[in-house]
């Protein structure tokens, strides 16, 4: 049931996740906070409003799958998985420390809730396509969601997956694109332009919807809607670094890390 009852929870979790991720990055002096924060509201909406899962049974066959293709955004993913109950909070300070289960990129062999190992870009969407095909041929009821970055869409493997998903009409598959319009060093459109991304996915056989990627109600409506007859592409318009004034829209925060004063400032803003 889609009700706005979920919105206060999603809002609270998104705030906790932002504070948690920034604390992890500050402590480790490593990470990708810009992309963590552009994806945060999408993950909070999925884990606290959309996905069917049981953190005590991470291998439950009928679970909905969420594949984090932008695997570098582990601040977002780990804070979401922790908030969802997959592992205890006392694991968080180990982020990127030697032999930590919280690697710089997610590893399903160590960490419950991770569906596939990502990091190199353009891997999650093909794997999610395979998960959706398994559901299609077995008649399973689970849904598969995959989040890619927008710069990541420059990887050709995504378009191989788009052809397959469109051809097979994988209605149980939702591709979410974190459209923050920035990649590591510059804007996507000045690097190797993606627009018109909506028309591209329409041409590949997707039902395309654009949404404000920080509007929980809008995200909930789009991501929680029942499957149609085609795979869905949700272009989530986002702001890199969303929620912290000095990070918003600044490309260098892709893998920038905060000093003590910046950390303090961010914690004052994230309330």
């Amino acid at each position: 049931m889609l009700t706005n009852d979920k919105l206060p929870l999603i809002r609270d979790k998104a705030l906790w996740m932002r504070r948690t991720a920034f604390t992890m990055v500050h402590r480790a002096q490593l990470g990708h906070p810009g992309g963590d924060f552009s994806a945060m509201d999408i993950l909070a909406t999925l884990y606290f409003g959309v996905l069917n899962y049981d953190p005590t049974r991470p291998d439950m066959p009928e679970r909905d799958r969420f594949v984090m293709s932008k695997g570098h955004a582990t601040g977002a993913l780990y804070s979401a998985l922790c908030a969802a109950g997959y592992f205890p909070e006392d694991w968080l300070p180990t982020y990127m420390q030697p032999k930590s289960l919280l690697n710089g990129h997610p590893n399903r062999n160590y960490l419950p809730g991770v569906e596939t190992n990502t990091g190199p870009l353009g891997h999650g969407f093909p794997v999610a396509t395979g998960i959706a095909i398994a559901g299609q041929i077995t008649g399973a009821s689970y849904r598969t969601f995959v989040l890619t970055g927008d710069g990541e869409q420059q990887e050709g493997s995504n378009w191989e997956a788009a052809m397959v998903a469109g051809h097979r009409k994988l209605a149980n598959l939702t591709l979410i694109i974190d459209r923050n319009r920035l990649q590591q060093g510059a804007g996507t459109e000045e690097t190797s332009g993606l627009d018109p991304l909506d028309d591209k996915y329409r041409a590949f056989g997707f039902d395309v919807q654009e949404v404000d990627g920080h509007d929980h109600a809008a995200l909930l409506a789009v991501l929680g809607a029942s499957p149609g007859t085609k795979p869905r592409c949700v272009i989530a318009n986002t702001t890199k670094g969303k929620g912290v004034s000095f990070m918003e829209g600044v490309a260098s925060w892709h893998h920038g890390v905060p000093n003590a004063a910046q950390y303090e400032q961010a914690m004052k803003e994230l309330v």
């Binding site: 794997v127 395979g130 050709g156 191989e160």
Partner: peptide, 24 residues
């Protein structure tokens, strides 16, 4: 149970991983 992804090896192998995730 024969999944032909077309001439596309990257998605072919990725789909294999996904099918295993889905219990195949």
């Amino acid at each position: 149970r024969l999944i032909n992804v077309g001439i596309a090896e990257q998605v072919m192998v990725g789909v294999g991983a996904g099918l295993a995730n889905g219990g195949r």
